[in-house]
Simulated assay, not measured.
Amino acid sequence: MNDGESGRRVIDGRFELQARLGGGGMGMVWRARDLVLDRDVALKEVRPTDPGLAEYDPHAAAMLRARVLREARALARVDHHNVVTIHHVVDTDAYAYPWLVMELVTGGSLQDRLDKRPLEPVEAARLGREVLAALRAAHDVGIQHRDVKPANVLMRPDGRPVLTDFGIAAIRESTTLTVTGSIIGTPDYMAPERITGGEGGPGSDLWSLAMMLYVAVEGHHPLRRGTTLATLAALLSEELPPPLRAGALTGFLNAVLVKDPARRADAETADRMLAEAAEGRGAAPGALDGAGAATSYRLAPPPVSTPTPSVPAGFGPPVGFGPPTGFGPTGPHDAVP
């Protein structure tokens, strides 16, 4: 790092930092100027919460560095207009961790937009279909995103979404960076099968996308609780309340927000349902098409109260997954994962 004539930090003698765009627990994203190509870019600076990490825990620092490089490789392998483009990686002895040089997306994030107002169902369906296209492109080259959420969907000035932050992407042939017992991802949008310790698959990304769209149209997360553990417990043991504002998007949400991944709609079905919802013609729940196939999925009916025999402790049904549809009346839960 050195100083340019303006006194601003210059990374690798080429990228002049101009302003902070945002950050999280593991780093900062900067707006920068590429002095060689004379264009604006985004620089992702990895910065652990503890600056002394490399000194007292070299193994953890090496894992973090490997994860950053894995993000760069993941992004480079996905060539799609709805995925942020990576231009360059600065990886020299002058810096403890690599810097990622990426396309600058200037329209803010979906989270910024949702902070102002929820989306209309048709608008959410159009956005969701583009994010789904980005996910399918990643899945085609063996990459799962694993952290789809509003903050990781950036907006171009023309309103088109761009999926970013593949920092915890799971590349199928590179599983050594998974840390046993750790939670990788944002709990609010994590698929149930991943909460229970499974690696999940592409369908887990579909769940996250559907939950993101649920939040986008309803204006709130249906199962967010006061703590991370309480949220995880709710995602496992409580039913999602049926959406009230989803309109034509309801069929898609009902088909994808299914706790059993084996019964969850696949990407092709999800895309078709989003396309219909984007045109405002999503079928009413339970409707059938001309061939007799369900074009939407019926919401779970309220459960019928029936007396249940007492069961000795330890012999009851497994806690965690509700009815296959995932939607239903919110009820009390008495187990924490």
Rank of each mutant, 00 (worst) to 15 (best):
A54E: 01
Y56S: 01
D57G: 06
D57R: 07
H59C: 13
A60D: 02
A60G: 01
V68D: 08
V68N: 12
L69G: 07
R70G: 01
A72R: 05
A72V: 06
L75T: 08
H80M: 05
H81D: 14
I86E: 02
I86G: 02
H88C: 06
D93T: 10
A96Y: 00
Y97E: 02
P98I: 00
W99G: 11
V101Q: 06
M102G: 02
E103K: 02
E103F: 06
L104A: 03
T106L: 13
G108F: 11
S109N: 01
S109Q: 06
L110P: 01
D112Q: 11
K116E: 14
P118Y: 10
L119R: 02
E120V: 14
E120Y: 12
P121Y: 07
V122Y: 09
R126Q: 13
L127F: 08
R129V: 15
R129Q: 14
V131A: 03
A134F: 00
A134C: 04
A137R: 03
A138V: 01
H139I: 03
D140G: 09
V141R: 07
I143T: 03
I143P: 00
R146T: 08
D147R: 00
D147S: 12
K149M: 04
A151H: 04
A151T: 05
N152H: 09
R156C: 12
D158H: 09
G159M: 08
G159Y: 00
R160K: 13
P161R: 10
V162Q: 04
V162K: 11
L163E: 03
T164H: 07
F166T: 01
I168C: 08
A169R: 04
A170N: 02
A170W: 13
R172Y: 07
T180P: 15
I183P: 10
I184Q: 15
D188W: 10
M190D: 08
P192G: 11
E193D: 13
